[in-house]
Amino acid sequence: MREVADRVSSLRPLVVLDAAGVQRIPFVVSATRLGVETTNGHGAAHIQDAHRGWIRRPAPADWDVGMRWGSKQAAVQGAWRTLLVSLLRNPACEWLTSLDALLAAENKIVQCRTATGAGIDVPPLMVTNDASEVSSLPGPLVAKPLGPPQYWLEQGDPRIVFAAPVDPQDPSVAELLAGAPFILQERVRAVRHLRVVTVCDEAWAFQILAEGIPLDWRRSVAAHTSWRPLKAPDIEQRAVDLSAAMSVRYSSQDWIETESGTYFIDLNPGGQWLFLPDPEASQISAAIAHWLQG
């Protein structure tokens, strides 16, 4: 967020908000007014006059860690979130990705269904709690979380749920399926992992070789700094087409290249890009800022 905000002209009023930050600034909201203090010293801003907006993350990642549902704290934070959502649903503002499109695009089943409908190859997958259905999937399998990919322990330590290989013949599969909905998907053998970032009709592709890194490359610290730019016009265009089909004008997508073809894996409508190399990462930041300025 700071990377983009710093690129927005100081001559333009800028407002930066999230569910925690809105509590610390003067605001007034009514049926005809949406007024908040600007971030860059332009005084009060009337959000109903807002030109364009970008939803990066509505609340800090750990904002509700340790909160007990049904508690007074939950009610208070729910009220702040409701206030923020009323601002994000300002019909006068054009959003890089609207709130509804953002929420829909975070659903991996919706992503894969949309990609398949657009003629993009996706490894066969299913979500089921019936272990007998698993045998209908081809080849070795991988399990991925359908819901949030991270959670916090009671001590406040974060945990990430990585993609993991699954043996469909293992008796523990039935227990896994009963615990929570997981995506079971054919495990394709990667030659290269691809990260494709889209902003409107532009795309930037990056690659890392799959040899020597885990099934889920995020497990490798080295992998985060090993990405290299890739000229892949066909994949870039398919990534732009997919983001357009999902009504998201920013996306961070994961693809896998195998010896027999390239497959779409995942789309994050608010994903990270600053771990990718420059100058391309800076170009992505500049493209978002340029769009915000119209």
Rank of each mutant, 00 (worst) to 15 (best):
R2C: 05
R2A: 07
V4A: 05
R7Y: 04
P13S: 11
L14C: 13
L14H: 10
L14I: 13
V16D: 00
L17F: 00
L17N: 05
D18F: 06
G21Y: 02
G21F: 01
V29W: 03
S30C: 02
T32S: 14
R33W: 08
T39P: 06
G41F: 13
H42K: 11
A45R: 05
A45S: 06
A50T: 10
A50M: 09
R52A: 12
P58G: 04
A59E: 07
P60H: 00
P60T: 04
A61V: 15
D62A: 15
V65A: 11
M67T: 15
G70V: 11
S71D: 03
S71E: 01
Q77V: 07
Q77C: 01
A79W: 05
T82L: 08
L83K: 03
R89C: 13
N90Y: 05
N90A: 12
P91L: 12
C93P: 11
C93H: 04
E94P: 05
W95C: 04
L99T: 03
L99E: 01
L99N: 02
D100M: 14
A101N: 00
A101V: 01
A101M: 03
E106V: 09
E106H: 14
N107R: 09
N107C: 14
V110M: 07
R113Y: 02
A115S: 06
A115F: 04
A115M: 01
T116S: 08
T116W: 00
G117P: 04
G119N: 09
G119D: 05
I120H: 00
P123C: 02
D130S: 13
V134E: 10
S135Y: 09
S136N: 10
L137F: 02
P138I: 05
P138E: 05
P140F: 06
L141M: 06
K144H: 06
P145M: 05
P149A: 06
Y151W: 15
L153V: 04
F162D: 00
A163C: 12
D170A: 14
S172D: 11
A174V: 12
L177H: 07
A178E: 15
P181L: 11
P181T: 13
P181K: 09
F182Q: 12
I183Y: 00
R187A: 13
V188C: 01
R189E: 15
A190F: 01
V191N: 07
R192N: 14
L194K: 08
V196D: 03
V199W: 04
Q207C: 08
L209G: 15
L209Q: 13
G212P: 10
G212N: 12
L215H: 10
W217Y: 14
R219G: 01
R219Y: 09
V221C: 07
A223C: 09
H224I: 07
T225K: 07
A232W: 04
A232V: 01
D234F: 06
D234H: 12
D234R: 14
I235M: 02
E236Q: 15
D241G: 05
L242C: 08
S243W: 00
V248H: 01
S252D: 05
D254Y: 04
W255D: 02
I256Y: 03
E257G: 09
S260W: 08
G261E: 06
Y263E: 00
I265L: 15
D266P: 02
D266C: 09
N268W: 08
G270T: 14
G271N: 06
L274G: 10
L274Y: 09
D278Q: 08
P279C: 08
I284E: 02
A289R: 03
A289M: 09
H290F: 04
L292V: 07
L292R: 06
L292C: 03
